[in-house]
Nucleic acid binder design. Structure first.
Lengths: 165, 165
DNA sequence: CATATATCCGACTGCCGCAGTAGGTTTTGG
DNA sequence: CCAAAACCTACTGCGGCAGTCGGATATATG
């Protein structure tokens, strides 16, 4: 799963939609103003969100967008998956001439990235729009600590600017 | 923390170094051939790794690179932090004119990205080069499951191509 | 019907970082 | 001295992101 600011914009817009839309459709113009995202750019994002069946559209005046599955039924991972293109795989494509077999070190890291991808996906699929709206985003006491708890400095040295693009 | 193929290359090289280097230095030419990475590109990466105090260099013929802290003392997160530049922060810079205050939705997602960054960092800082070499990369039964276990379909629907760039 | 409001749609642009290349200079063992 | 290695600086092509522009289509409301 690719993590870019593009996906962040999409999530911001969807959270806005979840927060302000309850019943009647919300226009992109509103979202654009509140989130300070250009309208045309939002249109492109929502075209993909619609293709991914995450929102429904209502055309004409008074129209706009609605969440297709409600705030509880929309996972963050789905949003990002819909907006960001899947990315070229981890280089060692199965069956490639210089594939994984024979070159051991390559595949060791392959496992690592795959597992990291699973971690990210698991986390993002555990959070819904409703969670974000209600600020239920999990403090630093949940999650991975069960696995890292015996390490020395896992809690310290948190990265300064943490974001993935 | 930014996640790009650049960081992946660095980790591949470091794993190679951990696997083949035990005592005497390893030249970048060897690593370049084994990992199929251009030599000059590797040099750039190792310049940063050296600046980050992750490797030591030995000049002259027979020279090369050594792990500065051994395979057990080198975390994957450190490698990526050293190689990838920290990235422009999550847009709402503290104290900015159109900062977080006043625009609520923005900050809700801010928490989300911060927490996601923590998740990623926690995972990557829990894995050392030695872990990767020994294929101790954690199957899908560890980690986040303690938090997601009560959800319906967290295990299913694993993403096809999972990687972040 | 006319019009304003909205979604839709495709094409174009500037920018930045990645991945790679080129061409050097120092250091140092043999 | 010589060759092998680290070291250093600058440049390049490419692709995706973020944003823009100009439209086409649908549809409530007067």
């Amino acid at each position: 799963m690719r993590l870019s600011t593009k996906g962040r914009y999409a999530v911001m817009a969807m959270v806005d939609l979840a927060k302000h839309g309850s019943g009647e459709p919300i226009s992109l113009a509103e979202i654009a103003e509140r989130q300070e995202i250009s309208l045309s750019y939002l249109e492109q994002l929502f075209a993909k969100l619609r293709a991914g069946n995450l929102v429904k559209s209502v055309r004409g005046p008074g129209g706009g967008y609605l969440l297709a599955h409600g705030a509880d039924g929309t996972r963050i991972s789905d949003i990002i998956l819909a907006v960001d293109e899947p990315i070229r795989a981890t280089r060692c494509t199965p069956g490639a001439p210089t594939g994984c077999s024979g070159n051991q070190t390559r595949c060791l890291t392959h496992d690592l990235w795959e597992e990291l991808g699973n971690q990210i996906h698991l986390y993002l699929s555990s959070v819904t729009l409703a969670d974000v709206c209600a600020q239920r985003v999990l403090g630093r006491s949940g999650a991975l600590h069960c696995q890292v708890q015996d390490r020395d400095d896992a809690a310290s040295a948190l990265p300064g600017a943490v974001a993935a693009e």
